[in-house]
Simulated assay, not measured.
Amino acid sequence: MTFDKEQDMQRKLKVKPIAESYNSYVIEEKEKRDWSGNIYLGFVAAILAIAFFT
C-alpha cells in the first residue's frame, strides 16, 4: 500500500460497547475486497493449464 496516493474509499465502521465494561468499545470495520489480484492469478493459471495440456 502506498501512502502518497489518496484513496476515495468510504469506510464502514460498527462501534459496539463491550458488555460489562466501562467505556470500552469494539470497532468492526467492513471493507470491500480487492479481487484484481485473484482474477489476474486465475487467468495466468488458466493459460498455464491450457499450455500444459495441449
Rank of each mutant, 00 (worst) to 15 (best):
T2P: 15
F3Y: 14
F3Q: 11
F3G: 14
F3D: 15
D4L: 11
D4H: 11
D4N: 13
D4R: 11
D4W: 07
D4A: 11
K5V: 03
K5C: 02
K5L: 04
K5N: 07
K5P: 01
K5Y: 05
K5M: 04
E6G: 12
Q7D: 02
D8Y: 12
D8Q: 04
D8P: 11
D8K: 05
M9I: 15
M9H: 14
M9Y: 14
M9V: 15
Q10M: 11
Q10I: 12
R11P: 09
R11L: 13
R11F: 09
R11H: 09
K12C: 08
K12P: 02
K12Q: 15
K12T: 13
K12D: 09
K12I: 09
K12M: 11
L13Y: 14
L13N: 12
L13Q: 12
K14L: 14
K14T: 08
K14A: 07
V15K: 04
V15Q: 00
V15R: 02
V15W: 00
K16W: 03
P17S: 02
I18K: 06
I18E: 06
I18C: 08
A19P: 08
A19K: 09
A19R: 04
A19D: 11
E20K: 10
E20S: 01
E20A: 02
S21G: 04
Y22D: 04
Y22R: 10
Y22F: 03
Y22V: 04
Y22N: 05
Y22P: 00
N23R: 10
N23C: 05
N23V: 01
S24W: 07
Y25E: 05
Y25W: 10
Y25A: 03
V26G: 02
V26S: 09
V26A: 11
I27Q: 00
I27A: 00
E28A: 09
E28F: 04
E28W: 00
E29C: 04
E29V: 08
E29F: 01
E29Q: 08
E29Y: 04
E29T: 07
K30A: 12
K30T: 09
E31R: 13
E31Y: 15
E31K: 15
E31P: 09
K32I: 12
K32T: 08
R33C: 07
R33A: 11
D34M: 06
W35K: 04
W35A: 00
W35Y: 13
W35C: 02
W35F: 11
S36Y: 09
S36A: 03
S36F: 06
G37F: 15
N38W: 10
N38D: 07
N38E: 08
Y40C: 14
Y40D: 07
Y40L: 15
L41P: 03
L41R: 07
L41C: 13
G42F: 07
G42P: 01
F43E: 00
F43Y: 07
V44R: 00
V44E: 02
V44N: 02
A45S: 13
A45Q: 05
A45I: 06
A46K: 02
A46H: 05
A46F: 08
A46W: 00
I47P: 00
I47S: 06
L48N: 00
L48I: 01
A49F: 02
A49C: 02
I50W: 04
I50D: 03
I50G: 12
A51S: 14
F52L: 12
F52T: 06
F52I: 08
F52W: 14
F53S: 12
F53C: 14
T54A: 14
T54Q: 13
T54R: 14
